[in-house]
Design a protein around this nucleic acid. Structure first.
Length: 189
DNA sequence: CGCGGGATTGACT
DNA sequence: GTCAATCCCGCGT
């Protein structure tokens, strides 16, 4: 099976489409000589300056969005890593999408490790656990994942059919008003 | 400069 | 189901 690295064109598209198509793709992390590959099984889209669930939103009164040092990567070019610390102890990995200047990203919420060795293989179900296992932290914030030697994404040729995908509301965004019920979470059934 | 809160997780009742 | 750990960020003063 081919291992094709995802390029900037992949991420420079509508965020919901990128979130859906990232399912089944492989997240690859290189630490020293060691390389870990995990198949993405769950994602969420955070899209645009009006998405009240997004760090980059500031409500209708700030049409351009909340552009701060933290959210800068979301406004930047597609394919770059937006990594932030949550609750003082967990990191979350996102990948910036759409065109530069438009704040959007896909949160990687879950993945399966390959190869699975017996039942010792931990389940990376949850963005915090995923980052902890793959040693993803703010050192990698802002990295261009289409050229980074430390973290990138691959298409390994496996296809996820639409009827294998479940679509739900996003997790933990009850504060987001009308945006809390958007079906912007995608997972492999 | 102080304060409130979080795109989570795991332990516990 | 409830709750706390733990610290950075954004904003108001």
């Amino acid at each position: 099976m081919k291992h094709k690295k995802l390029n900037q064109n992949f991420f420079a598209r509508p965020t919901l489409q990128v979130a859906r198509e990232l399912l089944g793709k492989f997240l690859v992390r290189k630490i020293g000589q060691r390389q870990i590959a995990a198949m993405i099984t769950e994602t969420e889209a955070y899209r645009g300056p009006n998405d009240l669930a997004s760090h980059a939103s500031h409500g209708p009164a700030w049409p351009a969005g909340r552009r701060t040092p933290r959210t800068e990567v979301m406004f930047g070019p597609p394919g770059h890593a937006y990594i932030y610390l949550i609750y003082g102890m967990y990191h979350c990995l996102n990948i910036a999408t759409e065109k530069e200047g438009y704040p959007a990203a896909v949160l990687i919420r879950g993945a399966s490790l390959f190869p699975k060795t017996y039942n010792l293989t931990p389940t990376l179900n949850g963005p915090g656990k995923l980052c902890r296992f793959l040693k993803i932290d703010k050192m990698l914030n802002g990295d261009n994942l289409t050229i980074s030697p430390r973290l990138w994404l691959e298409d390994r040729g496996n296809k996820i059919r639409p009827n294998q995908i479940k679509r739900t509301k996003r997790i933990g965004v009850d504060y987001a008003g009308p945006y809390k019920d958007k079906l912007w979470r995608f997972m492999i059934k």
